[in-house]
Simulated assay, not measured.
Amino acid sequence: MTDGRLYRLAAFPVGDQGGNPAGVWIGASLPDPAYMQRIANEVGYSETAFVAPESGDVRTIRYFSPRAEVSFCGHATIAAAVAIGHRDGAGRYRFSSLVGDVDVEVGEQSGRFVASLTSVEPRHEPASVALIKEALALLGWRQEELDPSIPIAKAYAGAWHLVIAAGSEGRLANLDYAFDAMTTLMLRENLTTLQLVWRERADLIHSRNPFPVGGVVEDPATGAAAAALGGYLRDAGLLQGEARLEIRQGEVMGRPSLLVVDVPASGGIKVSGAAIDIRQGS
């Protein structure tokens, strides 16, 4: 079944600039995986979401990078929610994904649609000494250049990410890694992106996200990683109670992105942002 409409949106822009492009295919039922993979490859964005109605406000959603299916993608979720908002109106929807149900809310703000997602239950685990050593070597980063207040860890909120906190803005700004070797490492460790961060202040974090397993050198906005980071900081006791964080990403790439992360006392992490139209086609 291939009848559907393909939308192209940029999620988490700053005003009308930047954001992370995502394809959003919406149809009466999901096509077969080979077709979805082909469309994602042709679209060429880091992720394309495929959405079909299930019942009521429930939508089935699947995510594909140009190379493979991905269990969950935050920026494509926001893009899909905004696309549905344009088609079906503002409101609350439930996305049935491979990792579980993800609640989304779509509304209008300052003349544009904005959306939020609430992730599945986050979790984290310490990174092994061997993983830390190998990842830092491939990045060309040294242990003394890191922020010791945010230990390196694997974090999950629908997909696994390796969180590495730089100790300075300059360290984060200088990113040059071995693409093929990093791909091998991340596939072995079941990592979707590296969540490289620098905490400017308690409520403002700058992020860069290598995504070589999806065939992308760097992702300009990564909602799944933002949720995973919020969950890690909370559950590791690195936040003081409930918090709202701003994550700035894509700045060095010339695609500035803003992700607002609300961290409750327990449960899933809420990630919010806008999505702007790039182009529509059938």
Rank of each mutant, 00 (worst) to 15 (best):
G91Y: 05
G91S: 09
R92H: 13
R92S: 13
Y93N: 02
R94N: 13
S96I: 00
S97V: 03
S97M: 02
V99F: 00
G100E: 03
D101N: 14
V102D: 07
V102A: 01
D103W: 00
D103F: 09
D103T: 13
D103C: 00
D103E: 13
D103N: 10
V104G: 01
E105P: 05
E105W: 05
V106A: 05
G107S: 12
G107D: 14
G107T: 13
E108M: 01
Q109V: 13
Q109W: 08
S110M: 13
S110D: 14
S110W: 08
G111W: 01
R112E: 01
R112Y: 09
R112A: 09
F113V: 05
F113S: 03
A115P: 02
A115Q: 04
A115N: 03
A115K: 04
A115M: 06
A115R: 03
S116K: 06
S116D: 00
L117C: 09
L117P: 01
T118S: 15
T118N: 11
T118K: 15
S119Q: 05
V120S: 02
V120H: 04
R123A: 08
H124W: 15
E125H: 11
P126W: 10
A127L: 08
A127E: 02
S128C: 06
V129H: 09
A130C: 14
A130H: 12
L131Q: 00
L131F: 09
I132A: 14
I132P: 06
I132Q: 15
I132T: 15
K133A: 14
K133S: 15
K133F: 14
K133V: 13
K133E: 11
E134K: 13
A135V: 10
A135G: 06
A135F: 02
L136E: 05
L136S: 05
L136A: 03
A137N: 12
A137C: 11
A137T: 14
L138K: 04
L138W: 03
L139K: 01
G140C: 09
G140P: 07
G140R: 10
G140V: 08
G140T: 09
R142M: 13
E144K: 15
E144L: 15
E145R: 11
L146R: 06
L146D: 02
D147E: 11
D147V: 09
P148Q: 14
S149A: 14
S149Y: 08
S149Q: 15
I150H: 01
I150N: 00
P151Q: 10
P151W: 08
P151S: 10
I152N: 06
A153K: 04
A153D: 00
A153W: 05
